[in-house]
Structure formats: C-alpha cells, structure tokens
Amino acid sequence: MNLMAQILINVIIAFLAGSLLLGFHRKVMARVQLRPGPPIIQYLLHSLKFFFKETTFPKTASIPFYISITVILAGIWVTGVIVGPVAKGSLMILFGIYAIHKIVEHNAGSSSGSPYGKVSCVRAVFSAAGELPLFAVIAVIFILTGTMDISGIIAYQSIHGPLIFQLPLAALMFFTLIVTKSPYSPFAITKGKEIISGFETEHFGMLRGYIMFSESIAWYILLWIFLTIFFGPISVVGYVIGMIVICIITGFINATTPMLNPNHSVMAQISIAVICTVGSIIMIII
C-alpha cells in the first residue's frame, strides 16, 4: 500500500480508537463509582465539537508558543504513529516523543499566563521523573533482546515467547506508566482537578481540539506499545481485547484511588522504577 495512505489510515485509526478507549475508560470509572457515565463516544464527540468552536487567545499569552504548542503536540503524535504502528521503528524515538509530550504539557501550561497552567507547568517538571520508568524499561528490554527496533523485539518474542513472562517487573513498571498517563490517575498531577484542567485550562476552541486529538492518539500508542513489546506478535482481536482490558484495569484503579501529592506521586513512581529495574536486571543476570 502507498506509505502516505498507510500513515493516514493509521492516524485515523489511532485517533478514533484512542478516543473510544478514553471514552470507555471514563465509562468504566463511572460504573465503578456507581454513576451511569457518558456514552463511550462522548470523548470523540467532544474532540470533534472543539474543532467547530470559536478560538480565542488570552491577552497575556506568549503568542507564537501558545498556538504552535498544540500543533507541535499533534505533530509529534502523528510522528509517533509513523514510528510505531507504521514503521515499527526504534523505541528510542518513541520515548523521545514522550519527552516532547512532557514539554508540551509544560509549555502549554506556562504559555497562557494562567496561575493554574503555571502550577501544572511546574508539576510537569516534577513529573518528568515519571519518564524515568520508561527509560528503565527500554534499557532493560535492550539488555535482554539486544535491539531497540519494535520489529526486532517482535521477532525476538516470536522466538522466545512474550517478554511479559521474562520481564514481569519491567511490564509492571510500564504498566505504572500507563496508569500515570491515564486520565484521572492518582499520579496525573499535571491534570489534577484542583488546578481546573491543568495545562489545558486556557486552551479553547480549535487548540483544545488539537490537544484532545493528540491525547487520544497518545493513549492508543501507549497501549499499543505495551501490548506489542510485552505480548509479542498478537492479532487485531488480541490488541482490541488487550486494550479494553487495560482500560478496565486502569479505570478501576483510577476510580478508587485519590490523587497523590506531587512529591509523593513522583517519588512513588521512582521507587517503583528503581525496585523493578534492579529486580529485572537481577532476573536477567540469573
């Protein structure tokens, strides 16, 4: 198939599936908390809706950044789709993308001049530590498989069996990351409700649409990576079931736990990361 067409199709899939999964996640949380919750497509409808709303810019904003940051966000996640499902390229690039995602959270918060955004921005810096598990995971995987390419990791798994059985602690670490990135998570300090919507507070209209668009792709890609690098070559049905199951689990966790204090959130993630990294390396050596 034509590469461009493939990229386009994959982006659309990522967007739609990601939105549906986020909607589903919200539904699960609602059901756990004994509320009916919105329909599953609500998230998608929201994102589409924002594209047709009027866009305004705060007078205090730092202008080129305030606008371009959303475009950058969308751009990096399209790149993420290209590197991930389309090209099955290097994991390092994907984690570079996560780093930029952090930056976007940071700058979207600070560029508006809103105090809520500012708090979110500072917290984004705090939670840059949350990326540490990521690097630990890829380092551990690299030590075991000797490759960084997703296709290489898939090939490795088709020979040696899924990595989750060999590196359960790394999988746990990655799952912590998924919990961190999921909405309403106990670790999601950048979007805590006490700071309104965190970094998105001052982004309206089209800009918000871009942010929501990218967030759904981000969620899809995150789950996709997790399933791909830990469960080996699985079919479409496998992906669908896996993603739904992860959404249910994270939904349960997020619905039942309160949000942590920023320091505690960061240090808890780091502690998990350190314990799991050391454990995995010991397991590999043994």
Binding site: M1, Q6, I9, N10, I12, I13, L20, P39, I41, V236
Partner: peptide
C-alpha cells in the same frame, strides 16, 4: 489492507453509535 478495514469498522461503529 487489513488496516483499511479496521478503519472502516471503527468509523462504522462510531457512526452507528452516533445514530
């Protein structure tokens, strides 16, 4: 080609949901 169908399924599902 598979991805195209997946996309179609998702779109159809969403259209169905909206309907």
């Amino acid at each position: 080609m598979e991805e195209l169908y997946i996309m179609i399924y998702i779109i159809v599902f969403i259209v169905g949901s909206i309907a």
